[in-house]
Amino acid sequence: MAAFKPIATTRSATGVLTSKLAVWWLLASEVVIFGGVLCSYLMHRIAHPEWAAYAAHTNEWIGLTNTFVLLSSSLTAVLAHNAAEREDGPLAARWLLATVGGACLFLMIKSFEWYTEISHGYTISANGFWSFYYTAAGIHASHVIAGGLIMLWVANTARKNEELHRVENVGLYWHFVDIVWIFLFPLLYIAK
C-alpha cells in the first residue's frame, strides 16, 4: 500500500502537529491504565501491613540499575529528538538505536531479576504483593517492548531523513514509559 496521507492529516487547527496530538492523547489514556494499577496497588499496600515483609525481598540494587538504564535511555531519546530538530536524520537514528539498546538492557536485567525471584519461590501467585509486583512491572515491560519495536521502525525511516517528526513522537512515548518506572521504582523497591 503506497504512502497514503489525506489532506486531513496535513491540517492543524489547534496548532499542534496531528501525530504529536495523537501521542499526547495516547499518553493521557495510558495515564489512566497505569493509574488503575497503581491506585489498586497503593490501596492494598496501605491496607495490608503484612506486605511490608513481602516487599523486603525485592532487590533494590537491581531496581536502581534498571532506573539508571531507563533514565539514560530517556537521555538518548531526547538527544535523538535534538538531532531530528537539527534535521540530522542519521544521527537521530543512531541515538534511537542507543535507546533501543537501553530498552534491551532493561529487559535483560528484568528477566534475570524475575528468573531469580521465581526460582526462589516468589511467583505471581505467592501473595498479593508479588501479584501486583509482576502485574505492574509486566504491563510496564510490555510497554518497553512495544516502545523498542516502534523505535526500531522510526529509526529506519529517520535514517533516510524521512518523517523526522516521528522521532519526537516516539520519544514522548518513551519518556512516559520512563516516568511510569520512576513511580514504580519507589512503590515496588524503596518503600518497605
Binding site: 499542534v16 496530538l21 492523547w25 493521557a28 489512566v32 530517556s74 516516568i179
Partner: peptide, 23 residues
C-alpha cells in the same frame, strides 16, 4: 522529565488540560 525531555512547558494549553484531566 516532563518539562525538559518532553517539552510540555512549550506545548499548547489544550495538551495540559487533557493530561491534567486524566491525572
Amino acid at each position: 522529565v516532563i518539562k525538559h525531555f518532553m517539552h510540555l512547558d512549550v506545548e499548547k494549553p489544550i495538551v495540559h488540560y487533557f493530561l491534567v484531566t486524566s491525572v
